[in-house]
Every structure is written in structure tokens, then in C-alpha cells.
Design a protein around this nucleic acid. Sequence first.
DNA 1: CGCAATTAAATTGTGTGCAACTTAATATGC
DNA 2: GCATATTAAGTTGCACACAATTTAATTGCG
Lengths: 156, 156
Amino acid sequence: MEKTGMNNQESLLKLENFLCFAIYSTANAVTRAYQPRLAALGLTYPQYLVMVVLWEEENQTVKAIGDKLSLDSGTLTPLLKRLEAAGLITRRRDTVDERQVLIGLTADGRAMRAQAEAVPIAMGKAFGCTMDEAKSLRSELIAMRDNLVESIDEVK
Amino acid sequence: MEKTGMNNQESLLKLENFLCFAIYSTANAVTRAYQPRLAALGLTYPQYLVMVVLWEEENQTVKAIGDKLSLDSGTLTPLLKRLEAAGLITRRRDTVDERQVLIGLTADGRAMRAQAEAVPIAMGKAFGCTMDEAKSLRSELIAMRDNLVESIDEVK
DNA sequence: CGCAATTAAATTGTGTGCAACTTAATATGC
DNA sequence: GCATATTAAGTTGCACACAATTTAATTGCG
């Protein structure tokens, strides 16, 4: 006689076996952990990432920022408007290619960088792992992310 | 003469060195990758997680579901109302402790489990890693998540 | 017992993410 | 050269996340 097939021990449908859930819940925890450390700067975590991208290189297009962060204009446009309203960035149309909007830093935005240096240091302790562990985990995650992104194109 | 201190090569403020960003962007990719595979079920990724929790055990409180998924009532209440509107779950006050709301499955919600079995199989391929890699990555992430959660309490 | 503290959900408000679509500008092929 | 395709931002609508607050019920403690 066959078993029902339901509630069998080896089921793939168990939350504790889900790699996806480990990623999902860790990402939520990352955002929550950054929040009190970013409060002094008045930034949200995604806003902080945009600022990091701009501290590396000023005057990038929305598209370029989106490629680096894997975010589209639907997410970035309102976020950038908030950073502009906060007086941290500038937005101006590219005169050569008027489809593009160039994002620059204000003096305040540039000055914030010094304060922001403390954030990764504080967060490094919070993660509670060695530099080497962080490095290998990062590269494993990125490889997996690229696999996932590739698989999306295949399904569609 | 001292250098400006800006743009130095060893800066901790570089996106490509961020473990947090690897987690963040992988989590976003996870949600996007699940979406086409969950479309047949009419579920979002967080809704799917709630259904997984309920397939493991029916009649759990909102609190119990929230503990398992690290989500609060602010997220769960509207999500559960949508699952109820979709005819997949039931919501009723606990008669013993009227503060609590017990979440159960409807026949449709229970029946969906069989279809859902295909999802982890399809996603396993999308992740593109071995079972062992997935296991070790999962435990590393969960350890890190717990470290992060602990650190939040310390900061506050 | 009686009342302050705690707990569970729900509510409110803000800020993402992202699909789908629109608008405007540039690139491309014939 | 010019119609068509492509591209970049922006817009709209929906569904999370989560902080902060509210409401109602239960616990705990003197």
C-alpha cells in the first residue's frame, strides 16, 4: 500500500531546508541591522548603497547605477528624488544624450563620505565572521545570484 | 605630505567588497526567480513561504508564523488577508486566548501543496549548486543572520 | 482582588522592489 | 532620409518590510 505522499520526512517543502529562505531572512536582517547605524546619516539601506556607488564615481546615469545595484528606474527614480530632496545629490539631463539623467553629488553628499566610513567597520563586527569567511561567502552568493538571473531569462 | 584620504584603494566603502550587498542583491534575485515559477499558483514569494509554514502545521497563530519567518504583524496581517481573500486560508480568533488569531488552511489551500512540490525542484536547478553547497551556505547564512539580529539588540 | 505590565493583532505611514506601461530621444536598417 | 526598433527615465499600481502606535486581552504581582 502506498503512503499518502503528504508529510513525508524527506519532503523538499520544509522551510528549514530552504536555502532561499536563509537568503531572504538574512537580507531582511541586514536591512534591520544597518538601520540604526545609518540613522545618524539619515539614510535607508538602499539609499546608502546608492551613495556608496556615487562616492566611487560621480556623475553616473540612472542606468549605470541601476546596473551596479540590480535595480530599475521604477525603484531608483523615487529614491533618487528623495536623496535630491535631502540635498545630497543632483539630477540633470545629459546634454549630449537627453534620454539620460546624470546623478552627481552635492557638497553635503560628498562630505557625508567621511562619516560613512564608520558604517562598514561597525557592521563588520555585527556580521561576526572573519574577513576570509566574508570573502568566500560573498563570492558564493554572487555566483548563485548570477545563476538565478540567468535562469529567469530561460523561464521567460 | 598626506594624501587626501579619499578614493584610496583599500577603502572599506567599495560596493564590490560588500558582503551585505551580495546578500541583498541575491535576495532580490531569489524573489525575481521564484516569481515566474509561483505565477501558476498565484502566489508571491512571501505568500509561498507562509503556505510552506502552514503545510508543515495547520492552525498556527500569526505570532508563530511571524517567529518562523522573522516577520511582524505589520507585514503578515495584510498578507494573510490576501491569502484569505484568495480562498487559501482561514482566520479565526482563538476562543481560549482572544488576542490570538489562528490561521488554518482551506481545502484549496491544502490541495495546492501537491502542485507546490514542483517549485523547489525547479528552483534547485536555478540555484546551480550542489545539495552539499546549498547546505553549507544555508548554515553559514543562518549563523550570520543570528549574529546580525543579536547585534541589533546591542545597538538599541 | 485590582491594577500595572505584558502580549497579540491590527493600523498607519514611509520606503522600497518590480511588472507593465508611457514618453521622449537616439540608433538602425533599408 | 526616414520609418522602425531600441533605449533611458519616469509613471502607475501592487505587495511587501518595518517602525511606531493603537486596541483589546491576558498576566503578574503586591
